[in-house]
Nucleic acid binder design. Sequence first.
DNA 1: GGTTGACCTCAACAAAGGTTCAGGTTAGAG
DNA 2: CTCTAACCTGAACCTTTGTTGAGGTCAACC
Lengths: 166, 166
Amino acid sequence: MEASHPAVPWDRDELTVGDLAARSGVAVSALHFYERKGLISSRRTSGNQRRYRRETLRRVAFIRVSQRVGIPLADIGAALATLPGDRTPTAKDWRRISQAWHDDLDARIEQLSRLRDHLTDCIGCGCLSLRRCALTNPHDELAEAGPGPRTLLVEGLEPDGSDRPA
Amino acid sequence: MEASHPAVPWDRDELTVGDLAARSGVAVSALHFYERKGLISSRRTSGNQRRYRRETLRRVAFIRVSQRVGIPLADIGAALATLPGDRTPTAKDWRRISQAWHDDLDARIEQLSRLRDHLTDCIGCGCLSLRRCALTNPHDELAEAGPGPRTLLVEGLEPDGSDRPA
DNA sequence: GGTTGACCTCAACAAAGGTTCAGGTTAGAG
DNA sequence: CTCTAACCTGAACCTTTGTTGAGGTCAACC
């Protein structure tokens, strides 16, 4: 209802949840979910239906890209929360928050590379001594962001240092 | 009870679930869980308590390292299932199954690197056009193993090709 | 003004990877 | 022989990221 003309310019600028879903390729249920989690927000019509600003399209795109990079929704939400609320985010704003992902990704890639390079030494050799292995050594370990196990591997496998391979 | 001597050599070779937990740094509840999932197995004493072979220590270490690499438990279980059941796995056995992780890791690192290199182009520029962006383009996408979102990003952001940055 | 598709809320379920708790048994030290 | 730490099972609960369904409303076309 809003006004009796359904296609005035400033109405054109708003998207229904279905529009947003179609345009972003994200299911309506996921958009509702993101909204419950505070990652996106909407205005309600007098009939209680959601209307999104076009800017939301970019937020959703950012969410999906970030998830693909392996960032949990909570972190994405925190990053989005740093965007200005009083104006539409600029290229600079997006660049700033994407920089954090870039750094995160760098660290993650570095860590995975180390992991890979030690895999053969540590598992491949069959000894897998947790005490000595670089793979399982917490010192080797950084903040570990992103998916995957967060618990660190600890302590010694063989108290006597031997490993009894057979 | 087994036999009336609690410290005979072949008994020394067995670990209680508490021992295994202490040695591997994994909670007892997690070990029970791994056992329910078939990743490890135990003998039971006459009093129904678990006894693990020392070899199990290496399996648990393998599980934790694999999780750290980002492999789901089900896949780890499948890999472990290829180990010989009739003898203690050798260095060669472990090398073989770790090779698969190595390859997986290579692919994952490659993909993350591509993602990182496109991040600035795609989010950083502020346009985030899903249609054009390499980040969101399924063609760019491979099997995507490991943690993180599996759903592909799709379709166009702006039907008219423009993006209305502000 | 009626039909139909899109929308609303709330609740339940899913899968992964566990943890916690209740209620009861065992093992081993003294 | 008794005490207690460690063990057992099963069920419930947790987090994340949503999906599905039931029951009901809204909006737009003819």
